[in-house]
């Protein structure tokens, strides 16, 4: 079973993403900011990360940049954000994201991207 880490400071968003991913059969773990995410990602190997950009303490960019430096297997990361600055998408790829989605994410859209990232397109 694939293991996904959902990182967002809003509880509602985490529950929403968790619901969609669990419905599709993924196992979900949550973190509510970049530092907690980093701690969890160092503890457990994940197959996919779903990361918000604006978070307190350590934002999504900071988290990914730091994670990409760690000597561990690197999972793909989907970054999600509100409309935000035009530079966000570029910064997301620079920080090590594999794809970038705008909030609110629709269930079918999220699952399509998750499967793509996990190499399960035919599922």
């Amino acid at each position: 079973m694939k293991h996904v880490l959902v990182v967002d400071d809003a509880a509602t968003v985490r529950m929403y993403h968790r619901g969609i991913l669990e419905f599709a059969g993924y196992m979900v773990e949550e973190a509510l900011n970049g530092i907690e995410a980093l701690e969890k990602a160092l503890e457990t190997p994940f197959d996919l990360l779903l990361v918000d950009i604006n978070m307190p303490r350590l934002d999504g960019f900071g988290f990914l940049k730091e994670l990409r430096r760690q000597p561990i297997p690197q999972p793909p990361a989907i970054m999600v954000s509100t409309e935000a600055a035009a530079g966000d998408e570029k910064s997301a790829y620079r920080a090590g994201a594999s794809c970038y989605l705008l909030k609110p994410v629709r269930p079918a859209q999220l699952l399509a991207h998750a499967r793509l990232m996990l190499g399960e397109e035919n599922k």
């Binding site: 900011n33 530092i35 503890e43 303490r57 350590l58 900071g62």
Partner: peptide
């Protein structure tokens, strides 16, 4: 407790025994 409550001043280091 995790540093996430405090600050991003420090880097996280994972050692075999602890973070």
């Amino acid at each position: 407790e995790s540093m996430s409550r405090i600050s991003s001043l420090f880097k996280v280091r994972k050692f075999p025994e602890a973070i």
